[in-house]
Amino acid sequence: MTTIWIAVIGTSFIAFGLKYLGHSVPEKYLKNERMLRINTLIPIVLLSALVGVQTVAEKSKLVIDQRLAGVVVACIALALKAPYFVVVISAALTSAAIYNFN
């Protein structure tokens, strides 16, 4: 087997295992008040961190570029209670405009 096949199969196997593991934690461990609070906060912190990383990280460097402008515009749209697709499209248009005309 080639390196690539091993990588494809190994990555897929572990990716599914990690996903399934999360779903398999017995509910009794998640039922107490403290775990409920923590568990509710986990996706909020992970997705917030993801937004930060996707906006200014480039591999292991921090870079300020058109992405940040797009996300700032999305913040403004959200603050103005714009519909969801307007938020996404305004970010895309801002970022694409800066990227293409720079």
Partner: peptide, 22 residues
């Protein structure tokens, strides 16, 4: 993805999902 703004659309999409929780 940068040429059509997808590089900002994806984080903006996630931001829009987390926003109501903040």
């Amino acid at each position: 993805p940068s040429a059509w703004g997808l590089d900002a659309a994806v984080p903006a999409a996630f931001l829009g999902l987390v926003w109501p929780r903040l």
